[in-house]
Write a protein that binds this DNA or RNA. Structure first.
Lengths: 170, 170
DNA sequence: TTGATGACTGTACAGATTGTGCAGTGATTT
DNA sequence: AAATCACTGCACAATCTGTACAGTCATCAA
């Protein structure tokens, strides 16, 4: 069981207020500071928490247009060389190889629809790309999120161990 | 100009090592601590930095399968009601309304291909959804990233103001 | 039943960091 | 020329972090 209920509450707390430190978190969760630290260490070690990096909003950077581009690749060469070249393009935010009609699905951003045309042209120009069909994101109905999943997983893991009583010191 | 060269370096530093505090960052960048704090405040206020929340890896949670589902909706009702229902499904990680043949594009995750079938069934069962066609992500060639974009924007903004000299105190 | 483990709890202490405020300095703008 | 604005350096109080340690429970294997 990757995350239990306490892990879930911990993640939610840090998601809601990243500024709270370990000490404050332990106070709010009603556990010892060492416990929170140990949990965070474990979650990071296990890769559940990939990091605490700043989340950048492309829109705030002027790139308010998002689009998804499906690529058809030339058979020869394979995906990797194409991916490497796409990685050179800053506007390519993400890329997956996929099943189905297309070979690759990319998420790209642009400053405007006109700029989007430019970015798509750049992508189509990449060696190995045969054809590209794109759909523009008109609105983000559900922004990227993982918390619901964390809740589901952590609530599913019925807790087994519980508290204790503690003692006196000094 | 949303972000200048110093902002760019600042963002890159926090992306690489989120643990470094404001003080350490100021030392490495060779600027005063107050400057770093002011920059971070501004970037957060302007929305460039959306937050510092923990990045959760669905794969580490057991959801190693990612897929993109294109939805055709029934004309009546519109997108929002559907989006609200999709939001109830933890496995729906993201959703956009889009141009083109489909009406909506969702990103979903599942524990396995068999589990993926279950999730898709849940989505198809959502009221308002006419049809769904999905493609599975076989490999993530380019993981979600924004740093290249930050670099492009920040390098493009030719800096104007520069340092000073400082003084003595106490 | 008896260890051995592992996860927690409180506590402690030194060192480092944060939140703020302030005065002085250039560069830029009105 | 006056007013702003962004920075620098420094100061101080209040906190927090890293780390360590002993004692308690619960679980697990012998």
């Amino acid at each position: 069981m990757p995350v239990d209920e306490l892990d879930g509450r911990l993640i939610e707390m840090f998601a809601a207020e990243p500024r709270v430190g370990v000490l404050e978190a332990s106070r709010r969760l009603g556990v010892a500071r060492g416990t929170v630290q140990a949990r965070l260490d474990r979650l990071s070690r296990d890769g559940v928490i990939a990091g605490f990096g700043p989340e950048i909003d492309p829109a705030a950077l002027g790139y308010g247009v998002t689009a998804f581009v499906t690529l058809q690749l030339r058979q020869a060469g394979g995906h990797d060389p194409v991916a490497r070249r796409l990685a050179q393009v800053p506007e390519v935010i993400e890329a997956h190889t996929i099943t189905g009609a297309g070979d690759m699905l990319c998420r790209i951003v642009a400053r405007s629809n006109a700029d989007l045309q430019r970015v798509i042209d750049v992508i189509v120009d990449v060696a190995g790309v045969e054809r590209a069909s794109s759909v523009i994101s008109l609105a983000t109905q559900i922004p990227y999120r993982t918390l619901p999943l964390v809740r589901k997983v952590s609530s599913g893991a019925l807790s087994g161990s519980r508290g204790h009583l503690g003692q006196r010191d000094s």
